[in-house]
Amino acid sequence: MTEREPPTPNPSPKMREGLQGPNPVFAKSKRGESDQGNWARRLGEALRYGALTIVLILFMVPVYGAIVTAFKTQAEVSAGGYWTIPRSFASENFARVMDPDAGNLGLYLGNSLLLTIPASLLSIGLGTLAGYGLGKYRFRGDGLLFVFIVAGMFLPPQIALIPVFRLMNDIGLYDTLWAVIIIHTAFGIPICTLVMRNFFQVVPNALREAALIDGANEYSIFLRIMLPLTLPALAVLATLQFTWIWNDFLWPFILTQRAESRTIMVGILNLTGQYTVDWGGQAAASLIGSLPTLFIFIFFQRYFIKGLTLGAVKG
């Protein structure tokens, strides 16, 4: 799965060129029919993009609403101008939700970073180790072990909720970010192992054997030769894990309580409880909470999409 897929030419543009392009031979041979075909095709295109555009506009309404509301004053929202373009582009909503004495989102953003970065790195690290062990070595029961690990991808979190809640209480980590870091690390192992194992499987063995002949040991091969090759796979996993862990609500909701260990998503939901009618504040908080994953979406979309389909298709 990690090999790049051969670029498959898309049939429709090609055929469209054939029919519409300045190709007199083609046009002549069809004798007038092509004109009709041309029209039918253009009409089809227009209808297709018309329909797609309508769906897209409907699709973007929620996003538009969140953006315009975030920049409106309370008065402007209550005046009923919820869906109009903001008149003033006020930044007071952002200031209010970030203010330590009001929304206090700064603290929760920091907490979420303190949770998401280590948990992503740890799950990717452990997944890389397991993926290497399963992708480059043959041993009795390796296939079974692989299935056993990957099966974890499908587990609904609900099945582990109560025991993990109790375990974290028992070992004294309840209501700390550590509890959430540990659980996201562990639940990230299946997808990371899957991606890395598939990646290592297609790395040519000749590389490893040449290094063995040169006298390198297995661990220096892993560190010096294999790891540098894994960068694209690591980028895929980094975007995926960061997005999931950042956006997750259930685990921090169950495992933390105090404001000091509250993550951004739990914080934002709390905010909506406190300021039920403060749509501007809620919208500003939603935008702030989405910025890191939007950043990944904009700049690393290729990796993110690759990760989504890898996990999906192989899973």
Partner: peptide, 28 residues
């Protein structure tokens, strides 16, 4: 690929398996 002595893959797999087992399988 040939079969390897178990110690080699085990040295890569032990830590991830331990974490996975303790915090995913055991709770399940």
């Amino acid at each position: 690929l040939r079969r390897h002595p178990w110690i080699l893959p085990a040295s890569f797999l032990l830590l991830p398996l331990l974490v996975y087992f303790t915090f995913v399988i055991l709770p399940t």
